[in-house]
Simulated assay, not measured.
Amino acid sequence: MSDDDHVDDGPGGGLTTGEVARRLGVAPTTVRSWDRRYGLGPDAHTGGRHRRWTPADVARLERMCALTATGLPPAEAARLARAGTPPPKTAPLPGPGPRAARPRDRNRTGLRLGGARRECRGLARAALRLDAVALDGLLSAVIADHGLVTAWTEVIMPTLQAVGRKWESSGEKYVEVEHFLSWHVSGALRRCVPAAPPVSPAPPAPGAPPGSGDRPGATVLLACVPGENHTLPLEVLTAALAERGVPVRMFGAALPVEALVGAVRRTGPAAVGLWAQSRTTASRPLAQHVAAMEWGVRGARRQPAVLTLGPGWAGGQAVPGLPRPPGLAEALAALEAVVPGDPRQGVTR
């Protein structure tokens, strides 16, 4: 247990810095920074190394959180928080009664988070403040605590969706918040999977495509279809596969048709995942063409298993005969059924 997590049960004891940070949904370093830079520390000081925060101290920090969430620069928000200025009122939520207008219904972030996990509030606050240090710490903690699948499904994705809804309803006012959050999520996904040790490639099988010598036919290829730039869902799938030892090649956003076909021919993957966020980018002919590709010697020809990933493949864009996993866990299960994990292998980007 760190000093910040120490609990003082003695008379006059208050909350520790760690407890305050958890209550506010910010990193302890953020609380210390606000104390050091803006004078928002405890009014009373106790002996020893441990800082103690009273309800009045915490209320001041809550005002700071609420004010920065409106877009105020931290220095100005701190001045108003010290003066006791309340945050501006948010528009009431639909529904009868005075409770609908309380900021708490939006978790004091201005974002509609509904019944999402409490960690979403911390991520939303850090993103709205454009607080890189806090955001990186919170993302790393939620992935470490819950694992990639749960962290993505129950914390990261609901927060991204809430920020996206805020952007859509506010014009371009919050576009920087969505970009900032997406960038840091991408970085957290890359950091959470350790680099794989080098493995001596096996000789390619007769008739196998060039570049497929390291476990021929046992690779997953992931790419966004042409015109599709939403890469985060594929990035989390890449990280989760790599974590399980499934060799994966990730090609990112808007891979042109010729490049996609060339990559499949060169690597001879056992499975191909094609991401389409929108129905306007999903292409049934492209998915069918990739699924029909073959390689290998006569009598032992192979074809990739093609998964259509993302909401763009729903409805009329669904490809008969090709699986469309509804979520991350289902996509992982489908790909691991085709390409079993090998702890010696890692991600290839």
Rank of each mutant, 00 (worst) to 15 (best):
T54P: 00
A56Q: 04
A56D: 06
D57G: 03
V58H: 01
A59H: 05
A59W: 01
A59R: 09
R60Y: 11
R60T: 00
E62P: 00
E62Y: 07
E62M: 04
R63A: 01
C65G: 07
C65A: 12
A66R: 03
L67P: 00
A69M: 04
T70Q: 03
P73A: 12
P74M: 08
A75E: 07
A77Q: 05
L80S: 03
A81C: 06
A81S: 03
R82W: 12
A83P: 02
A83W: 12
G84N: 08
P86G: 09
P87R: 15
P87V: 06
P87H: 09
K89R: 15
T90Y: 15
L93D: 14
L93K: 13
P98V: 14
A100R: 14
A101P: 01
R102A: 15
N107V: 15
R108F: 13
R108Q: 11
G110K: 03
L113K: 11
A116W: 13
A116E: 02
R117T: 06
R118V: 14
E119T: 03
C120N: 07
C120I: 12
C120H: 10
L123Q: 07
L123Y: 08
L123V: 04
A124E: 01
A124H: 01
A124Q: 02
A124R: 00
A127K: 02
A127R: 06
L128N: 10
R129W: 14
R129P: 01
R129T: 05
L130N: 09
L130W: 13
L130S: 12
L130V: 09
D131H: 04
A132F: 01
L135D: 00
D136L: 02
L138K: 05
L138I: 04
L139F: 11
A141R: 13
I143A: 04
L148R: 05
V149N: 00
V149Q: 05
T150L: 14
A151V: 09
A151I: 09
T153K: 10
T153Q: 14
V155C: 10
I156Q: 05
I156E: 05
M157R: 15
M157Y: 14
P158G: 02
P158S: 05
L160D: 13
L160M: 14
Q161W: 11
A162D: 02
K166D: 04
W167V: 13
S169C: 06
S169Y: 11
S170Q: 02
S170W: 03
G171L: 01
K173Q: 11
Y174M: 01
Y174N: 06
V175C: 05
V175H: 08
V177F: 05
E178V: 04
E178K: 11
E178N: 06
H179T: 12
F180G: 01
F180I: 06
L181C: 04
